[in-house]
Design a protein around this nucleic acid. Structure first.
Length: 390
DNA sequence: ATGTGC
């Protein structure tokens, strides 16, 4: 069974460090070092690296961290509430025209027009969002690894679960990956200005102040993904229904092995909240999976949030520009189309920069953490068009 | 990651 479920050397005997990974799944050493370093933080009781673990700025991405008495906002990072929203649309797959689809998305990055005012207002009231500083970003996906992707059901892996979720392979699906944009960033900046990377004691005022803002950013990110999805569906003239919406960057109260504390997730998909999507790169399959309840504690109630980076951002262009022109990168091996106006990003997010999603999924299966419902194939991936002045 | 920064 390879090194799956390995116990790694811990800084002291009270911290449980584990790595969810099979032999076929490569994980960068630097990421494991970061995971071990994070386990040394005061109050930390358990950390778990997911199969997509990779190095971040000081702390690893693709991991869950359980602490008691303290939280660490820097572990969650700036994109509080970032996650995946998955929709079944009414668009018949057989009637899909890629050129037409691509054309209809020309205006999709501008701030929402006044036509959306009522929906935005109602959405904010419904989710108790009072902040209005970043209203102009609501309904926009942003940059980095964020995207919106039309997908097709490529293979049904579990017919019973597929039917239970009331899915239909004749229709097109929409996957949205985005977060809290400038709002989460402003919350982390404020915290770091006051406290550096120190944690916040549960009893202090700044703790509850941070949590209140964090929770609002999580709701903001959820509303953002819904508005993005509705906007895309309106642009391509269809309707749809939400299948799931799951955050992979957040901190929430939890009980682990009888202790009450806080679970930080940084690029870690909750496995205690129904079906989830584990997306591959834009040139790879994504998987709709059902977390196994009985084993969820083994991975701190978390799963991988994607295929995981193989190469650091910024290294990608130099590694790929001899092999691929930027035009080449607008199509993938799976026959899907890519819309992205930012050339650097086109390389940074190339399929080659990510691991095979299959290896990630296999690691989770080996560990008994998931059942695969269906495999999805990308049809068209929309990413940022870059800055207007470029 | 960032209504990014020189």
């Amino acid at each position: 069974m390879g090194n799956s479920h390995d116990q790694l050397p811990a800084p002291n005997d009270t911290v449980d460090i584990r790595l969810i990974s099979s032999e076929s799944n490569w994980i960068e050493g630097a990421a494991i070092q970061q995971l071990q370093k994070t386990a040394e933080l005061n109050g930390m009781r358990a950390v778990a690296g997911m199969p997509d673990l990779h190095p971040g700025r000081g702390y690893p991405i693709g991991a869950a961290f359980f602490s008691v008495g303290k939280i660490y906002p820097a572990l969650v990072g700036n994109d509080i509430g970032c996650g995946m929203s998955f929709w079944q649309t009414t668009l018949k797959l057989s009637k899909l025209k890629l050129d037409k689809l691509a054309k209809s998305l020309s205006d999709i990055e501008q701030p929402l027009s006044e036509d959306w005012d009522e929906e935005v207002r109602d959405g904010k009231i419904g989710k108790n969002i009072l902040n209005d500083e970043f209203d102009r970003s609501l309904g926009t996906i942003g940059g980095g690894n964020h995207f919106a992707e039309f997908q097709a059901i490529d293979r049904i892996e579990n017919q019973a679960l597929f039917e239970e979720a009331e899915l239909n392979k004749n229709f097109t699906y929409l996957l949205v990956h985005s977060g809290s944009r400038g709002l989460g960033q402003s919350i982390l900046s404020e915290h770091v200005t006051q406290h550096n990377h120190n944690g916040l004691q549960e009893s202090c005022d700044d703790f509850s102040a941070y949590m209140a803002k964090h929770d609002e950013a999580v709701r903001w990110a959820e509303l953002n993904r819904e508005l993005i999805a509705r906007r895309f569906m309106q642009a391509v003239r269809c309707e749809g229904r939400p299948i799931l919406d799951v955050n992979h960057n957040l901190v929430s109260p939890v009980e682990v092995s009888g202790s009450t504390g806080w679970l930080h997730r940084k690029g870690a998909t909750p496995s205690d909240n129904g079906l989830v999507i584990i997306p591959g790169s834009r040139g790879d399959y994504s998987y709709l999976v059902k977390p196994v309840e009985e084993t969820a504690h083994r991975s701190l109630f978390s799963l991988a949030h994607g295929a995981g980076r193989k190469w650091a951002r910024g290294d990608c262009k130099a590694r790929l520009d001899k092999r691929f022109s930027s035009e080449d990168l607008l199509r993938t091996k799976l026959g899907s189309r890519v819309i992205c106006g930012d050339k650097e990003l086109l390389y940074d997010e190339a399929p080659e920069a990510y691991k095979r999603c299959d290896d990630i999924i296999q690691s989770l299966i080996d560990e008994g953490l998931i059942e695969v419902v269906a495999r999805l194939r990308p049809v068209l991936t929309f990413k940022t068009q870059g800055r207007c002045d470029k």
